[in-house]
Design a binder for these strands. Sequence first.
DNA 1: TTGGAAAGTCAACAAGGCTGACATAAAATA
DNA 2: TATTTTATGTCAGCCTTGTTGACTTTCCAA
Lengths: 171, 171
Amino acid sequence: MSERGTVPQVTRGESLLFLTDDQLRRGIEAMFFAYRGFTADPDRILAEKGLGRAHHRATHFINRLPGTTVNRLLEVLGVTKQSLNRVLRTLIDEGLVEARVGVRDRRERHLYLTDAGAALERELSDAQRARMRAAYRAAGPDAVAGFRLVLEEMMDPEHKRQYRQGQDRAQ
Amino acid sequence: MSERGTVPQVTRGESLLFLTDDQLRRGIEAMFFAYRGFTADPDRILAEKGLGRAHHRATHFINRLPGTTVNRLLEVLGVTKQSLNRVLRTLIDEGLVEARVGVRDRRERHLYLTDAGAALERELSDAQRARMRAAYRAAGPDAVAGFRLVLEEMMDPEHKRQYRQGQDRAQ
DNA sequence: TTGGAAAGTCAACAAGGCTGACATAAAATA
DNA sequence: TATTTTATGTCAGCCTTGTTGACTTTCCAA
């Protein structure tokens, strides 16, 4: 907070002009507008099917973590179990997700996408990846590396852990 | 869509490995987790005051565009006037925003933050900038340039325009 | 075997999106 | 001047997706 309105000093020959309040504000607005673009395409598809963004998030991570328990999914998504339950209810009722009672622990429900669920997930992620791919291609590999690094540094520590655990799957 | 599950070919000596579906998925998850971090600190402050993220977005852009009309703000925020109206109503009733009747065109309302509104805006953006600054510092200037470039490429064209117009203010 | 913890469900509420219809005032135009 | 268009605000009602609280079922450890 101490740097507001000031121009950071040049130290050891490095310019710190990328840390001015104005540059930070630009970054904040970039996040705001980019996130809108990021969700726009899946949102359109979901709206047609009477589903919402929450269903997309759930199917994404069920696809990524097949057989996950509800609890595990709760940690990743960061919502209350009641909130997730409503979304799962819909997905199960519509035949997109299957909840299998745990074998070792019968309190647990292990979640899997059905064929229809996998098809939906693919449709949504295809749309999202298409935009991402276009942006990556336009920006180039070095920019992408920077993009990923800054995003990682913005995460809460526990999300950073989860994010890193998601590495090297389906290579 | 055509590249799913394939490894992009190396063309003209460039590696296109940063465009694999898996790399794109990583970017998607990075956006998801980072956006959570991005909004977490202001959300906590807002919750204490009985306000929501929508109030933050409104005060942010009223601060950035002092004297903006309601219509202009609607375009930037991308919500309906009914939705914005509810938010503005609260902000005006709580003495955080002032709506002045237009001089040239008396149908217009020009929006300004009051002193209390400016103080709230500063508290919120200080919190958000603090996280941003830490991420920027940790990632370094080159990463930040890449971050901003990729985000810009992810925006819808009209948001990209608005984003670019926001350059070079309060230098 | 029993009491607590864990997983999941049901009910109710709130924020903040949305649409539609309508009112008012002012500006622009025929 | 009469009419239409524009900018704004408001009411009503709906939906999604968060929340908390209370409850059931199941498991496990004392």
